[in-house]
Nucleic acid binder design. Structure first.
Lengths: 152, 152
DNA sequence: CTAGTTGCAAAGCGTTTGCACTACG
DNA sequence: CGTAGTGCAAACGCTTTGCAACTAG
């Protein structure tokens, strides 16, 4: 629902991508969505998933969150919200902290930008990763370089 | 100054990268830094610039901001601050809005993460781009797909 | 000496695109 | 029917890496 402005035919693969996102609890990547999609439609291609994700984002049906050099994560558009991101394992979770429109107003008063919105991510160590000792990452190979918050 | 925890020898190229960042007004990309660096040391390689940037970020001397699929932008570590990003041209600017530590405390109360910090970027149209009509991007080719904030 | 560093070229990864074909409206 | 959408494979942009030759400590 809510197709507008753009053309947008209703292809099976587009619907499939959307369905998967709607069912999904978390914030899957294109790759993850692709893997799920091909279970139900083996012929679907990764390119198609990417194309549809991009369209759906452009339309406003989805929101895309890219943290550092990790692959983008997608979710269906709900109310504006923020995310917490684990600097160890990269997992992403929604926060219930309400959108701070005050901040938009403040910033509007300090720059000449035509402000649209802001995005905010909190970084920390998730409960699961807190268990593991400081240095043992989940998969042996942790390269949290970019997204890692300044280590001091 | 402030070498610690890691090994870190003082190579000329590392110093050069750091110097360039210190002199820089804006938020240069690795490529831009590389171009400036090779003016002063023609033999320096892009890989070295990337390697040093990564190290310096890991140490905490630099902070790295990646918005969407655009190349990372770097700056020397100052006080914590936020950025405004133009959704048309991608330019990035510092904001003087003080770090909202209240938010960290709030979030700490709502999740079991070991919180470190948050990052926030404001999106809008910069003064320069406001001049240009809605659809004429600065270089003919605007593909603001990922970083573009949901268009509605 | 020897572990960190460099330049080069090649590889890697996520994402996009050109093309010929298919299918929605 | 015409145009948007698809699958495939190749290309892309940014970043990383293997390697052999250095170099700072």
């Amino acid at each position: 629902m809510a197709e507008k402005s753009v053309t947008l035919k209703a292809s099976l693969q587009r619907q499939l991508v959307l369905d998967i996102l709607k069912e999904s609890e978390g914030h899957p990547t294109a790759q993850t969505i692709f893997e799920e999609a091909r279970k139900r439609m083996p012929s679907i291609s990764l390119a198609t998933v990417y194309r549809n994700l991009r369209l759906l984002v452009k339309q406003g049906n989805l929101i895309e969150s890219k943290i550092g050099n990790k692959p983008s994560r997608f979710e269906t558009r709900k109310n504006r919200h923020y995310h917490v991101c684990c600097v160890r394992c990269g997992s992403l979770e929604d926060l219930v902290l309400p959108y701070q429109s005050v901040l938009d107003r403040k910033v509007e008063g300090m720059v000449r930008y035509q402000l649209q919105e802001h995005r905010m991510e909190f970084f920390g160590i998730c409960p699961r990763c807190q268990g593991r000792s400081r240095n043992s990452s989940q998969l042996g190979k942790q390269k949290l370089h970019q997204p890692a918050i300044p280590a001091r």
